[in-house]
Nucleic acid binder design. Structure first.
Lengths: 141, 141
DNA sequence: CTGTATCCAGGAAGATACTG
DNA sequence: CAGTATCTTCCTGGATACAG
């Protein structure tokens, strides 16, 4: 029926991937692993605010998705290395793009937030942008 | 102190932006608005599984970040349009990249998940990749 | 070192009802 | 149509303790 099933249906691939990527720890870890394999506690130390539980959990998820690979070295004590898989490596480009966007536009975002918070609380004399439209309604689709 | 403060510190811009973008609804809505302004209930209908509460909440957040703009038309009943701001428009490219990645690699991800779930539950004869390493430990940094 | 298991508080999100 | 308010439930995620 749906020739062009919109990408916003619940079963859409984009949605599935997004659900996983909508995890800041996952994105952060992928970015970190992009520069080479890392050990468990190494990652733990590098990502500020990441608890051991979340790290373990997130790594497991990424491994399940085939994005990272877990290698155990039978040293004593044991050491474990996490590295991007070839599939995972294909993701670093989009993620890098996101990181670049963040760095170049964070200032504007923060400014917008400040402006919003400034205008919000106050009782408005001219609070919101209102337009009087006669005939030409916006949604005359 | 930190000449190269790692991007994984809690105060890093990337982190701040990521926290917001780590919201699947937000990303989805931005993608939807990339093709033109939309009304409230229009968005609600288009994004499957998105509750009214989450829509309202997410839109407010995006507006606060200066990524979208809310315009009220004084029709009867009232209509409201949401559109990307210039800042928001700069985000569609990275998001599109993500969407494209998702569409081209979803198959591999699903396959990896299946393989993982397949190997996981079973009691392993040769479950995990283990290497015996003598001297050359991995983390000889 | 690399995890897993348990407890527990706080936030996220659905359902529902109501307002302008 | 475009929301806000409230209630309740569920899950996330931190802290802690323990195991291989």
């Amino acid at each position: 029926m749906e020739q062009r099933p919109n990408p916003y249906a619940a079963n859409c691939p984009t949605r599935l991937v997004l659900d996983r990527l909508a995890d800041k720890w996952a994105v952060l870890l992928l970015g970190l692993l992009a520069s080479g394999p890392q050990r468990f506690n190494q990652l733990r130390r590098e990502v500020e605010g990441l608890s051991q539980k979340m790290l373990s959990q997130t790594l497991k998820g990424l491994q399940r998705d085939g994005l990272i690979e877990r290698t155990v070295f039978a040293t004593a004590p044991i050491t474990v290395e996490y590295a991007l898989t070839p599939l995972g490596r294909t993701l670093i480009s989009p993620i890098e793009a996101l990181r670049l966007w963040a760095e170049s536009h964070i200032g504007e975002v923060v400014a917008a937030q400040a402006a919003y918070d400034d205008a919000g609380p106050a009782v408005p004399v001219m609070p919101m942008k209102v337009q009087n439209v006669g005939a030409g309604s916006p949604a005359a689709r």
